[in-house]
Structure formats: C-alpha cells, structure tokens
Amino acid sequence: MPLSKQKLILFIISLLPLAWMVVGLVTNQLGANPIETVTRDSGLWALRFLCLTLAITPIRWWLDINLVPFRRMLGLYVFFYASLHMLLYLGLDQFFDFSEIVKDIIKRPFITIGFFTYSALIPLAITSNNKMVKRLGGRRWKKLHRLTYFIAIASTVHFYMLVKQDKVEPLLYATIVGALLLPRLYRFFQSRMSQNKVITVTK
C-alpha cells in the first residue's frame, strides 16, 4: 500500500474518537453529564495520541520499524484533541469569561499546568510543516520539538492532580510516559559519555 493511502487510513482512524463523542452526544449516550464526559475524553485522547507520538522513536530503536512518516500527523492530532479539550473548558466550563479564566489559571495549579501545557503545543503545531522545518533548520527545529517531553510530563501531572481519589488511571499514563522518556534519557547520557571519551582520546 502506498504511504499516502496508509496516511489517509490513519487520518480517518484518528478521527474516530471525535466521531464517537459526536454520536454519543447526539444519541444521548454519554451519561447524565455529557459535557464533563466529552471534556475528559478529549483530554484523554490528546494524552493517548501524545503517547503514540512518543512511541515512534523507541519502536524504531527496539523493533526496527520505521513509523516516522506518521509522527507528524499523530502530533497534530495531539494538538487537535487538546484544542477541543481547551475549547470545552473555555466555553462550557467558563463560558468565555476571561477574567474568571485568568483567575482560574493563577489560582489552580492543575489549570495552570494545563494552560502551560497547551501553550507549549502551539509553537509545535505552527512549526509542523516542511516549510517551517526548513526555515528553522533541522537542529533548531529538533531542539524546539523537545518541548514534547515537557508536554508529556506536564499533562500527566495535570491528569494526576485533577483526579479526586483513585490515582490508578493517571499513574498508568505516568508509567507509559516514563517508559517512553527514560530510554531517551539513558541514550542521551550514554552518547554524552561516549562523546567525552572521544574528546579525551583526541586531546
């Protein structure tokens, strides 16, 4: 199957959570508090797509499968579901009352974190096309997109903080995010150490 077709299929599959929410809303299947359900689910799907995005590199390392061509789309779906999540909060939780929203952002640590997490997604979405990669240059682009690691950690913390009592689900996501980030950290230090060695040898 040509790559373009594979991408189209992924594009459609990634829209299914949205379709599920819309159908659920229309047919009244989302329980007694559908707004809360949709707000929660959109946030959760953003986190799930984020995990998928972060999994691309380890999959290449360990399974030798190259899914890099799909990463941009997955990343943009993180932005898509996070935007939906944010809009639902702004519109249906706060009714676009911006003085209230600012107060909320300052006063509530989990909202503060959520706000900064979403803000960090914006430059990544803006610089996601080829033109921007070229304009920034590969190295700088890569550096900027390391923000993803911050976003991953912050969004899990955001999730952990808003849960009232049973922390199992956020801890599950924290574990997944940890499992995806720690190997990178390990590799990072490993490569730095070997670089140091090279330097001493050439001295």
Binding site: A32, N33, I35, E36, L92, D93, F95, D104, K107, R108, P109, F110, M161, L162
Partner: peptide, 19 residues
C-alpha cells in the same frame, strides 16, 4: 470557599448546558 484544587463558585445542574 474553594476546594484546594477547584472553584466552588459555580455548579453544573445535571441536564443544563451552562453552569
């Protein structure tokens, strides 16, 4: 008096759209 993590100033009556 807010809950430490969220505001208690408004509520969503189940079945209503806005708080």
């Amino acid at each position: 008096v807010d809950h430490p993590r969220w505001s208690q100033s408004r509520e969503r009556r189940i079945g209503e759209l806005l708080k």
